[in-house]
Structures are given as C-alpha cells and as structure tokens.
Simulated scan of single mutants.
Amino acid sequence: MAAQAEAPASTQRQVPPTIAIIIDDMGHNRVEGERLIALEQPLTLAFLPYRRHTSFLAEKAHKQHKEIMLHAPMANTRRLALGPGGLDEGMNQSDITLTLRRALKSIPHVQGVNNHMGSLLTQKLKTMDWVMGEINQYPLYFVDSRTIASSVAGDVAAAYRIPTLSRDVFLDHEQTEEYVHKQFQRLIETAKENGSAIGIGHPHTVTVDYLGKHLPMLDQQGVAIATVSGLWAIRNGNMRMFAEGEKRAIRPALAKQE
C-alpha cells in the first residue's frame, strides 16, 4: 500500500473533529434517496445490490460528489431474508466469491464495502477470509458495521491490509426525532473525544429530515464532515489508500440476480 509522508504534527492538530455518515439500505426508496443526494454535505451512500433504484441513484449520487459503497447482505442470527446478492453461511468459497464479485460489478462507482445485517456471517472466520480475499483484489475499503460485538470482519480485513474502519454509532435504530438527535449528539461527542467517528443511518424520512436540518449546523459546533475515504485519510496522515495500478479495476456489468 503506497504511503505519503505524514503531515507535520502542527498541521494534524488543526484538523477539527470529523464525522463520516454512511447511509445504508440505499436502492429501495427513490424519494428519500434523491433527498439525501441533494444534501450539500459529503455523505457516503451504501447501496444494496440489484434493488430497483440502485443503479439510477448511484449514478446520480456520484455526479453530486457522494461516495458509493456496496452494502453487502450477509447472514444474520435472526435468519432474516437477505434478498438478491446475499452471502449465506451455507455457501462455499466459490459461491461467496462469485456472488460478491457480481454484486460489486452491479454498483456504479463503488469505492467501499460494508455489511448489511451479518450478525451471523461476520463471526465466521473462514467465510470472512473468503470475503476479504475477494475485496482485497480491488481498490476498496471495508467498514465493519458491527452488527454484533463478536464480529471478526474488521480484523480479517485489517489482516489483508485492506483499508478498514468500523461503525461507532447507529443513528436511527428508533425512528423518532428525539432518538436520532440523541445518537447524532453521541456521534459528535465521540468525534470530539477521539478525533473522528463514523455514524450509520438509513433512508428513513425522520433521518433525512434531521440531517437536512442539522448537518449545516456542524460548522458552528466546530465539527467537520467527510466521506469515509476522506476520514480514513485524516486518520492515516493523508496517505493514499492505493498506488496507481496496485489493484484490479472493477468493471461494471449488468450482473444477474442470484
């Protein structure tokens, strides 16, 4: 992984507390998706593969300088349905690799991956090794959504030297303005304590309403917002994630649903 020289300590100290916000489950809801894309701030949008509005919204988001991720469906302890493109515990290495590869090719302008659900699969060391072995071929980062405390996904990604981050706060587990506000303030406090923090939300109307109102106020609080790759750069002395030509390009394709 190519690295640039670290910025002087005095420069690093000038970086304000920084948050990144990932919006999961993109691709189902066109109305709220377009509202999120219209926000001026550099959000990171995680798209489920093969959903009705995924390609359209991802292309539109890219034009509005949003960052695009694959929100990869993974098996969960509640046995909830994964939908197309899902990675299940019964799959062998070939199934995992092919399913993930097709899903990546179905998301225009993809720069990273995080897990959708995955409370079961992210605990499976062997399966996570297969997943990260495929991700490692491409210029992609990985964010562990940490849907369960015993997830090994981030550790396996880091072992492959994939640029790796993990979620700090879920913003909208409860869909009320009061709850979203409490979690948003927790995200800001975490960033102030640690220098940066990652929050995950969803395209719920209450979440989009809240972000539309409160993101423009971050400057007044002395807090910056960045894409996930931007936040990773801040944490890593502005080094580049990948050298030019280091990884295989992801060639978009109209992949078939699983």
Rank of each mutant, 00 (worst) to 15 (best):
I107Y: 02
A3L: 06
K63G: 09
G212V: 00
T227C: 03
T190G: 02
V143N: 12
A255S: 15
P84Q: 08
F170G: 14
Q257N: 15
M132D: 15
I21T: 15
Y138P: 04
L140Q: 13
E258C: 01
H53Q: 14
A46W: 04
L48A: 02
Y50M: 08
L171S: 10
A249N: 12
E244H: 04
G195Y: 00
E6Q: 11
G245A: 05
T77Y: 09
T147L: 05
G85F: 04
W232P: 09
S55P: 03
D144V: 00
G230D: 10
L215N: 11
M26G: 15
L211S: 07
N238H: 14
V156N: 07
L87N: 08
Q41C: 07
S151P: 06
G230P: 11
W130R: 08
A149Y: 05
Q64E: 15
Y179P: 05
E67G: 05
A243C: 04
E246R: 04
N114A: 04
V206N: 11
K247Y: 10
R35P: 06
L187N: 04
A191D: 13
D25A: 01
R186N: 14
P203L: 00
L48Y: 04
V208N: 06
R186P: 05
P84L: 05
G27C: 09
G86T: 05
N238V: 00
E189W: 02
G199A: 02
V169Q: 01
T176H: 15
N76A: 01
T205H: 09
T190P: 04
D25C: 13
E193N: 08
E59Q: 13
P216T: 12
V208Y: 06
K256W: 07
L43G: 12
Q183C: 08
L140V: 02
A46H: 10
M128V: 02
A224G: 05
V15A: 12
G230A: 06
N76F: 02
K256Y: 10
R101N: 15
R235F: 07
W130V: 07
L82H: 04
H202N: 03
I135R: 01
I37T: 14
R248P: 01
R161T: 14
A255Y: 10
I37V: 14
N92E: 09
T122N: 03
A191R: 01
G90V: 03
P16L: 06
I96Q: 06
L100A: 11
P108W: 08
V131L: 03
Q4C: 08
H214E: 15
T227E: 11
H109R: 07
Q4W: 14
L98H: 12
G199K: 11
P216D: 12
G86M: 01
E244D: 11
D129S: 11
T77V: 05
T44R: 10
A38F: 04
V156H: 03
N114S: 05
G230K: 13
M69P: 08
M241V: 03
I107L: 00
T54L: 02
E34C: 07
M26T: 13
I21R: 08
R35G: 05
A157H: 12
A149S: 13
V228T: 07
R240K: 13
N194F: 01
T44P: 10
Q123V: 00
G201I: 01
Q183L: 02
L80P: 02
F184A: 11
G90T: 04
R13E: 15
G212I: 00
G33S: 11
T99N: 13
R251F: 12
T190C: 05
R235P: 06
E177S: 09
N194G: 00
V31Y: 14
R101I: 08
P139N: 12
L45E: 12
